[in-house]
Design a protein around this nucleic acid. Sequence first.
DNA 1: GTCAAATCGATCGTATACAATTAACCGGAT
DNA 2: ATCCGGTTAATTGTATACGATCGATTTGAC
Lengths: 224, 224
Amino acid sequence: MTGPKPRMRRGEIREALEQEILTGGFAPGERLDEQALGRRFGVSRTPVREALHQLVATGLVELQPNRGAFVREVSLGELVQMFEVMAELEGMTGRLAARRTEEAQLAGLKAALHACERAARAGDPDAYYEENGLFHEAIYDLCGNEFLAGEARRLHRRLKAYRRLQLRVPKRVEQSLAEHRRIVAAIAAGDTNGAETELRNHITIQGERFGDFVATFPMRNAAE
Amino acid sequence: MTGPKPRMRRGEIREALEQEILTGGFAPGERLDEQALGRRFGVSRTPVREALHQLVATGLVELQPNRGAFVREVSLGELVQMFEVMAELEGMTGRLAARRTEEAQLAGLKAALHACERAARAGDPDAYYEENGLFHEAIYDLCGNEFLAGEARRLHRRLKAYRRLQLRVPKRVEQSLAEHRRIVAAIAAGDTNGAETELRNHITIQGERFGDFVATFPMRNAAE
DNA sequence: GTCAAATCGATCGTATACAATTAACCGGAT
DNA sequence: ATCCGGTTAATTGTATACGATCGATTTGAC
C-alpha cells in the first residue's frame, strides 16, 4: 500500500481534493467516501467532512442527503453557461476599469501585458497561462469593485481547467495576446464600451450564439 | 431562562442564523460562539459548526482561524458594489430573456407582473416585495441560463434585507411597477438592449455614479 | 419465476472527548 | 510606571463514539 499519512489540515485537504477533481483524478459522479479519504490523508472524518462541505459551496461537489458526497458532473451546456456569466463579469471589470482608471495606475496592467508578450514569444503556453491570470487580476484591481473582483476570481478558479484547455488550440495564444493589447488600449483610452466588448469577447468567442443554441436543450439544475 | 431546545437540524440552524443576522438580531462584528449557539438550539457544537461554515460561504459570516466566527460587517461601499454586480447580473438575465423568449412562454412573466400590480393597488409593500421576488424569478426562468439564475438568486438573497428597505421610500412601489412594465414590454418585443438597460437601472438608480464616487475610497477586502 | 416486504449492512449526521492554538492575565524586572 | 515574558484559561480544531437513515440483499409468497 502506498498510502502516506502526512496529516494534512482541513485547508490542505480542501486544496488537494480540489486539485485532484479539477485534474480528473476523481471521475465525475464518483462518490467521495469520507472515511476512505480520511485514511488516505491520515486524518479522521471530521476535517474531510468540512473540506467536502467547502467544495460543495464552490460547486465542485454535490451532497446528497444521507447518501454522501459526489463529484459534480458538469455538462457541456452548464459549462457554456458558466463561460457566459464569466464573460459578463469580465466585461464589467473592463468597463469599470476603463471608466475609473487614471493614467498613473496603468503601470501594473502594462507590465502584466508585457509579461504575457514575453511568455508568448517564448512559445510557452503554461507560462502564458500564468501571466494571463495575472493580467486579468490586474484588471480586477483596477475596476474598483472588490466584490466583483471576488466573484470573478471565484469563477476564474472554477473554470481554470477548461480555460487551460482552450490555450492548446493552435494560434490561440497569439490571438489571445492581440485581444489583450486591444483591451489595454481601450482601458487606457477610457473607452468603456470598447473595454467591455473586448473583454467579453475575449472570454467567449461566439459564446452567445453557442449559448443560444444549447439553451434550447433541457439540462440539470444547479445544486442547492 | 427562556432558552427552549427544539433540537433543530443543521439546515434549520443555518436558516435561523441567517434570518437573525439579516434582521439584525446579531450585531455586525459580533462573535458567534459555537457552544453558546449549541445550547440555544439544543444541539451540540457539530451542527452549529457546519451551519456557520455554510454561512461563511454565503458571505454573512467571517471565520478567523482559531479565533471563531463573526458576523461579517458590510460597509456601505461594499453594499454599493454588491448592488452594482446585482444590476449587471439582472441586466444579463433580461438581455438573454429578451433574446430567447418565445411568445408562448410569456404567460408566467405577465402573470407575475399582474400580481405585482394587484399588490401595488392594494398598497401593501410587503406583498409587493414578495411578488417582486417572483417577478424577477420569472425572468430568471426565461433567461435559459440556469447557472446565471443561481448566481442571481444567491445575490438576491444576500441583499434581501436591503432591497426591502428601498421599497419603503415614498413613491418607490409605483416607480418600481412602472419599471416592471417597461421590462416586460422590452422582453416581449425581443428588445435585448432595452431589457438589459431597464433591468439594470431597475436595480441601481444612479448606482453607477454613486459607485464611481465611493470607489475612490479605500475599503475592506472580501473574506477568503 | 417474479415481485414484494422485511431484515441487514453501511454510511451519514450528531454527540462527546481530547489536543492544539490563541488570547488574556499576572508577575517581575528595568 | 511601563514593558516584557511566562502561565493559565478558554475556544477552536480534530478524533472517536453513537444513533438515525437509506440502500441492498435476501427471503418468502403468489
